[in-house]
């Protein structure tokens, strides 16, 4: 999933400093699963903003709403009557950064992102998420025991480990496992360690961001 985290409330308060009434929109997709922008987080942020502004003697009306997803136009369309009738000064989106862009494209109103979209990852345990994919556009993890050296090696080395690997840790931080250590262990476990003797060729990055923003077109799915 896309993993995100809420911006500091201080930064958000500065964004809405001039507003009296805002629409805070959550998303029931990835950011609900990573507890950053679902219905509950919308409630918590709305409450925090109201408390801060009541304290400042300049109340802010925050209307809460959560869409099924903000990355599909048909759900973003559902905001139309709310935005048309309620006289909001701005829309605050609690989705990954796709959401505020979809809302901005559709409605002539200022849109602010409430989250920092951080990475594509998964949950290691309750409350802990880690990066697992950098969406390079050409998955090669089967060559590395199913582990990704692009997203999970600090240098994205295709032929590791580097000299900074020590005691299973990356030199960047003791918090980071050396993925090349894990790849080696995994290949030993699979009985395929000899495969690591082959030098992996230079990766073709044309499927990554090198060609500018990417697009997928599926003619079979078009209406």
């Amino acid at each position: 999933m896309v993993v995100a985290e809420r911006k500091p409330i201080e930064e958000i308060l500065a964004m809405v400093a001039d507003f009296k009434k805002v629409l805070l929109v959550g998303c029931k997709g990835c950011v609900t699963v990573c507890c950053a922008g679902g219905t509950k987080e919308v409630g918590i942020l709305a409450s925090a903003l109201r408390i801060a502004r009541k304290k400042a003697g300049n109340p802010l009306e925050v209307v809460e709403h959560t869409l099924e997803r903000q990355c599909d136009p048909e759900y973003v369309d559902q905001l139309a009557p709310m935005i048309k009738e309620n006289g909001f000064d701005a829309v605050l989106s609690m989705a990954c950064s796709v959401g505020p862009q979809f809302i901005a494209k559709k409605y002539p109103i200022q849109v602010f992102p409430m989250l920092n979209t951080t990475f594509i990852g998964g949950a290691l345990e309750h409350g802990v998420w880690a990066e697992f994919c950098q969406s390079c556009g050409n998955c090669i993890i089967h060559n590395f025991g199913g582990l990704c050296p692009i997203a999970r090696c600090s240098k994205s080395l295709m032929n590791g480990p580097c000299g900074g690997s020590a005691n299973k840790q990356c030199e960047v931080s003791p918090e980071i496992d050396c993925i090349w250590h894990l790849i080696y262990d995994r290949m030993v476990e699979l009985g395929k360690v000899e495969k690591l003797r082959t030098v992996f060729p230079i990766k073709d990055w044309s499927t990554s961001r090198d060609g500018g923003p990417r697009k997928i077109v599926r003619e079979d799915l078009k209406l």
Binding site: I9, E10, L13, A48, L49, I51
Partner: peptide, 8 residues
């Protein structure tokens, strides 16, 4: 933490 952030 939230209260600290909103100045309470």
């Amino acid at each position: 933490e939230i209260l600290k952030e909103v100045g309470l």
